[in-house]
């Protein structure tokens, strides 16, 4: 664990330094230079944070649904702790994605919010997370809370993909094609791609590190409240 923390800390520091400090030049001559992206210039750097954040918020949702399913099968409250911790972190990352995306949208598309399909999808994911916690807070009894929350996470997990493919037909997307797209082609400069993928890996690592801390904390609180009074 200690080793993992150290590596993660070093890794993310390196990623952040590279993302902010590598110069953006018109003609690349050295390995540490980023190309000029017309229309983005310095703003291109947000790519290294926005996309990994979006990615982790989806990871959070998927982890939450997986443990929700497991809770319903095992009825062990520990699975509920994992599920709700994953959702809590997912909510945080989802909010950060929305904010970074909205800032990017302002400078690239001209408005903070345009109900672009991606914006709508991430907004609805935010709503789902919100609803999940609203439901949890309205039930007092542990088992019931866990069951209802798990059921809601699963129903939302089933309907969410529909939104992702329905939305783009309602409004055209201005959002760039996904970096990791279906054609298997990556249109990115090598240095940028390396930093980007390192950032993706770093944020995923960060997610799972915070996740393990949250789970540990929740378990301790759980234990304390069972022994309390």
């Amino acid at each position: 664990m200690k080793v993992f923390q150290a590596i993660l800390g070093f890794w993310l520091t390196a990623v952040i330094l590279c993302a902010f400090l590598f110069p953006i030049v018109p003609e690349i001559t050295r390995w540490y230079e980023f190309p000029v992206i017309p229309g983005l210039e310095q703003k291109a750097r947000i790519l290294f944070f926005h996309v990994p954040l979006a990615w982790t918020s989806v990871v959070g949702f998927v982890v939450s649904v997986i443990f929700a399913i497991r809770y319903l099968r095992t009825k062990k409250l520990d699975d509920d702790i994992r599920s709700s911790s994953a959702a809590g972190l997912g909510l945080l990352f989802c909010a950060l994605t929305t904010i970074t995306g909205s800032i990017w949208a302002k400078f690239s598309w001209g408005s903070f919010w345009n109900w672009d399909p991606r914006e709508t999808s991430i907004f609805v994911l935010l709503l789902i997370y919100g609803a999940y916690f609203a439901l949890r807070s309205s039930v007092q009894e542990d088992d019931k809370k866990a069951t209802l929350a798990a059921v809601y996470a699963i129903i939302a997990g089933v309907t969410m993909p529909f939104l992702m493919f329905v939305m783009p037909r309602i409004i055209a997307s201005l959002h760039p094609d996904p970096i990791i797209n279906t054609q298997g082609k990556v249109s990115m400069n090598g240095t940028m791609l390396t930093v980007f993928l390192s950032s993706l890996a770093g944020f995923t690592g960060l997610y799972f590190w915070i996740y393990s801390l949250t789970v540990r904390l929740a378990r301790l609180e759980f234990k304390r409240s069972s022994e309390g009074e």
């Binding site: 190309p35 000029v36 017309p38 229309g39 690239s108 598309w109 001209g110 760039p176 791609l193």
Partner: peptide, 22 residues
């Protein structure tokens, strides 16, 4: 009433891309 500009989805920045978009 509103103009939106679609940002490039290519992050290569080769002179070829630059030429195309300009």
């Amino acid at each position: 009433e509103d103009i939106l500009t679609k940002c490039p989805s290519k992050y290569e920045g080769t002179s070829e891309t630059v030429q195309k978009t300009l």
